[in-house]
Computed example of a mutant assay.
Amino acid sequence: MTKYQSPPAKIISIKDLERASLPLATKQVREFWAGGASEEFTLAENISVFDEYRIRTKVMTDVSNIDMRPKEIFGKKYSFPIGFAPSGFHQLATEEGEIATAKAAKSHNWLMALSSYSTKSLEEVKQAGGENVAVLQLYVFQNRETTKKLVERAEKAGYKAIALTVDTPVVGMRPADNYNNFKLPSYVKLGNFESRDGAIDNPVSPDSIARKAVLDDSKKEEIKTSNALDPTLTWSSTIPWLRSITKMEIWVKGVATAEDTKDAINAGVDGIWVSNHGGRQLDSTLASLDSLPEVVAAANGKVPIHFDGGIRRASDAFKALALGADFVWVGRPVLYGLLYNGQKGVELMETIFETELANVMMFAGTPNVSGIDKSRIVKKGHRLQKL
C-alpha cells in the first residue's frame, strides 16, 4: 500500500490534499478508499497514463476571459466541466456525510452524482445541494422491487438521471479490504434503505453474500430475491425495464470498449460514462483514458460521453476533454477534501481544480471549454495496439 509522507506545510495541489487527509483516517478507511483491485496495476495506470499525453501551447490568443462552463446538462449551465463522481459512505469522513459534499457542490456550482450506498438519504442530499445534485448512481439488486422504489424516490425528489453501474456483476478482489476485514462501523448507516426493504448486502465486505454466491451454487439460489448485486443484467432486458419505471435519463457507467458503446446506444441509453471503477474492479484492464478514444469514436456524437479515472490535476481533465469527453468526474479527490475538513475541504479541492484549469486553458490558448479538442494535445508514443 502507499506510504504517505508528512503533511505539506501548504495545500496547493490535489497531491498535497491527499497527503494531508489520508493519515487522518483509520487504516481500514484509508486503505478502503485508496486501494484498488488485486495488484493495483490498473489503479496506478489510471493515473500514470495521463503523462503519455502532452499539451500543445497556443500563444498570442486573447485569454483574458476564461469561460470554464461545459455544455448545458439538464438545461443548466454548471460552472465547471468536472463533477463529483459517486462514492459511498461519506460519513466515514465527516458526520455530515454526503450533505457536506452536496453543500460544497452547490457553493461552487459543480454537478454531483450520489451513490446508492450514500450514508444520507437521496432526499436529504438533494435538499442540501439543490440542482447541483442531479444524478443518482444505481446498482440493480436481484430484488427488483427495492431498486424500483429507489428509482421512483429519486425521480420524485427531482433527480434528472440515473447512472446505472454496469461494470459490477460482483465487486472486484480488493486485498486491503480482506486484510482489514472491512466493515462499516455501527454509526454509519445506508441512508437510502429502510429496515422494511430487508437486509442490504454490502458488496465491498469480504462477507458479501453476492461474492460468496459466485462459487457456491446453493447461495445463488438463496439470494435470487435478495438485495444483492445482480450479475444477470443485459442490454436487452435491463434498459427496457428501467425505461418502464422512470422518465429520468439513463446513463450507463463502466463502459470501456467500442463494442459495449454500440450496444448501449442500440439499447437506447441517454449517456455513456467511461470508467473502470477507479481501478477497483478488474486489475490489468484498460486504463480509463486508454478506453476513451474508442468509446468516443464508436458513439460518434450520438450521446454525451462522461469520463472518470485517475484525474488528480486539471491538466488531466483537460486531456480527457481534448480526447472527446463531454464531462469529467472526480472521485477520490472529493474524499480527500471531505476527510481533510468536511465541506470546506471539498471546497478547497474545487478551488485547486478551478485555479489549475484556468491556468492550463490560458497557456493552451483555449478561452472556453468548447475549444479544447485533439488539436491541443499530442501522444508521446504508442502504448497499446489491438492484436
Rank of each mutant, 00 (worst) to 15 (best):
T2Y: 01
Y4M: 11
S6Y: 08
P7R: 08
A9M: 10
I11V: 14
E18V: 01
R19H: 11
S21D: 08
L22C: 03
K27R: 13
V29M: 00
E31F: 12
F32C: 02
T57F: 12
M60W: 10
M68I: 15
M68T: 15
R69D: 04
E72V: 00
F80Q: 09
F80S: 07
P81Y: 14
P81G: 14
F84H: 10
P86H: 00
T101V: 02
S107P: 00
S116I: 02
A134Q: 08
Q137W: 02
Q142V: 07
E155M: 03
Y159S: 05
P169N: 11
P175I: 00
D177N: 15
N178M: 04
E194I: 05
S195W: 02
N202I: 15
N202C: 09
V204F: 12
A210I: 06
R211F: 08
L215K: 15
E221Q: 09
L229H: 03
L233E: 08
W235Q: 01
W235Y: 13
L242S: 07
M248C: 06
M248S: 03
E249M: 06
E249V: 00
A264F: 06
G268A: 06
V269E: 09
D270S: 07
G278E: 01
Q281N: 08
T285N: 10
L289E: 04
N300K: 15
G301P: 13
H306R: 00
H306N: 05
F307C: 11
D308H: 12
G310I: 00
F318W: 07
Y340L: 10
E354W: 00
E354S: 14
F363N: 11
V369T: 09
V378K: 02
L387N: 05
